[in-house]
Amino acid sequence: MKKIASHAIVAVLVFAGTVAVMRSQQAGTHRLPQFENEDVKVWKSVVYSGAPLTMHRHDHPRVIIALKGGTMKIVEETGGSEEHAWETGHAYWLPANPPGTQHADVNAGKDPIEVMVVELEKEH
């Protein structure tokens, strides 16, 4: 009986640890892959205020669908920046990034911004 109880306690602790890790991942800026094939790559990004996405680039054009809108500041590695006001429920076109450039996505507001990104993998 003690052995069963100790296994149950271990299982509960492992489950609690897993839930804590999942919550910590949900609480910070992150990307969640949704779908990918040879034509498109789709992911959901959640960007929290004060927690920008790291420097990256997009070799292909993409559509952004604002699930929860806000103002996203796109900061180029050269120091330049531009702001995009994304309204909830609207879609926006973003071209591929120029060769050799990178940028970071910074939430310029207080509330999290959630977007679905559909990146076209082929140039037509």
Results as ranks from 00 to 15, higher is better:
K2S: 15
I4Y: 14
S6F: 14
H7M: 09
A8D: 04
A8H: 01
I9R: 07
V10W: 12
V10S: 13
V10T: 15
A11N: 04
V12K: 02
V12I: 07
V12T: 05
L13H: 04
L13C: 05
V14H: 00
V14C: 08
V14W: 06
G17I: 06
T18P: 03
T18F: 13
V19C: 13
V19F: 13
A20G: 07
A20F: 09
V21M: 14
V21H: 14
M22F: 14
S24F: 11
Q25M: 15
Q25V: 12
Q25H: 14
Q26G: 11
A27S: 15
G28T: 11
G28M: 07
T29R: 03
H30S: 11
R31D: 14
R31G: 13
R31Q: 12
L32Y: 12
E36T: 13
N37G: 10
D39S: 13
V40N: 04
K41V: 09
W43C: 06
K44E: 15
K44S: 13
S45H: 11
V47M: 11
V47R: 03
Y48N: 13
S49N: 13
A51H: 06
A51Y: 05
P52K: 04
P52G: 01
P52F: 03
L53Y: 01
L53F: 03
T54D: 09
M55C: 02
H56M: 03
R57T: 00
D59W: 07
D59A: 07
D59F: 04
H60Q: 09
P61T: 01
A66S: 10
T71I: 01
K73W: 01
I74C: 12
I74Q: 10
V75N: 08
V75E: 14
E76V: 02
E76S: 14
E76G: 09
E77Y: 12
E77G: 09
G79Q: 01
G79M: 07
G80N: 14
S81T: 00
E82Y: 11
E83C: 01
H84S: 14
A85M: 12
T88W: 02
T88I: 05
T88P: 01
G89T: 00
H90K: 15
Y92L: 11
W93T: 08
P95M: 06
A96C: 10
A96L: 08
A96W: 05
N97G: 08
P98L: 05
P99Q: 00
T101V: 08
Q102K: 10
H103D: 10
A104Y: 02
D105F: 10
V106C: 03
N107Y: 02
G109E: 03
K110H: 01
D111L: 06
P112F: 03
P112H: 05
I113Q: 05
E114R: 06
M116R: 09
V117E: 02
V118I: 13
E119K: 11
E119R: 12
L120K: 06
L120P: 03
E121L: 15
E121Y: 10
